[in-house]
Computed example of a mutant assay.
Amino acid sequence: MESRKACWYSIVRYCANELTGEVVNVGVILHSIEEKALIKYQLISENSPKIRAITDSQVEVNIYKTFKDALEYYMTKNTENLLGIVGDVQIGSLMDEKFLDKLYEHYKDKKLFLSRPKFSLTRNLEGVFRSLFETYVGISYLETEHKEVSTKRLLKGLFEEKKLLDRKVMQDFSITPIKDLDIIKINIDFGYKNGVWNYLQAIPYIGGPSKNTEWLAKTKFMFENIENDTKVHLMYKSSNIENMEDFMGVLNYLSSLDANRILKLDLDDTRKVLELCDVIERDAHDIDELLIS
């Protein structure tokens, strides 16, 4: 029988407004140094209903996103340095069993903070993580966030590897599709311009008819109001799709609006994704040029 492994975990919490004092659980971090250092974490998206419920403006949403991105970046890059140094930040090494305690102290008294780490013994680290996330954050967020975030994170990682991100490819920006109506904004996951704008949008996990209808309506609205030559690439991972027939039915409907401008991008199709990277490297404008113009 597999022996039990020691691990520590913290709940990631967020308070958008110190005056109201409302706090929500937004993620889980689990750390173990048994056999080899392991860090598992997940935070909900800035577009999640939990975040929208406690924020009053896009500025407040962006503040949460800044905290989330900074923590995720540190956790990702921490594995590349035994001392836990990421840029100018040094919190602790993953090889240190007190890593979560140090992370807890680092984020103490900030808008995004951690619960005091707790100890556990388990034979199934993955099972413990899932149980913690379901209990403290919610099972719906575990399913939804994992699929949508993994799609965006996969492409973001590839763009970073190819040195395209923030050089040829913009990320997480807003557009106002209706002229002179600035209150209507649409968030874009990634975008590049090679003569015409190309927007890359991750398709969220659709959990029911109402969410399906809402997402379809938003996407159709965006397409009908952006410039006539703009292209929209709808990103997904076919390996994440539970009901492929229904899913492709929605995508095929959108493609039928204009097959030359609404394009499907399955991130499981490695060849197609690498071809896109080649096109961006070869044809896309530098972001600096776009900002100047």
Rank of each mutant, 00 (worst) to 15 (best):
M1P: 07
S3E: 13
K5F: 10
I11F: 05
R13H: 02
R13E: 09
A16V: 03
E18H: 09
E18F: 12
G21T: 01
E22D: 08
E22R: 10
E22A: 00
I29Q: 00
I29L: 13
H31D: 10
S32I: 02
A37P: 09
Y41Q: 00
Q42D: 02
S45K: 05
E46D: 11
N47H: 12
R52E: 08
T55W: 08
T55Q: 03
S57R: 05
E60D: 12
V61H: 08
I63T: 11
T66Q: 12
E80I: 09
G87C: 06
V89Y: 02
L94G: 13
F99D: 09
E105R: 12
Y107P: 04
L112W: 10
F113T: 05
F113H: 11
P117E: 04
F129Y: 06
S131Q: 12
E134I: 13
L142W: 11
E145W: 07
K147T: 08
K152P: 04
L158W: 14
F159P: 06
R167L: 15
R167E: 15
K168Q: 06
V169A: 01
M170Q: 12
D172E: 15
L181H: 15
D182C: 05
I183L: 14
G191Y: 03
A202L: 11
A202N: 06
G207A: 04
G208H: 13
T213G: 02
L216N: 03
A217N: 14
E227F: 10
T230F: 02
H233S: 00
M235E: 01
S238A: 13
M244I: 12
L251G: 03
S255M: 14
S255W: 03
I262V: 15
L263M: 06
K264Y: 09
D266P: 06
D268R: 04
D269A: 03
E275R: 07
E275Y: 08
C277T: 09
C277D: 04
R282I: 05
D288L: 06
E289M: 04
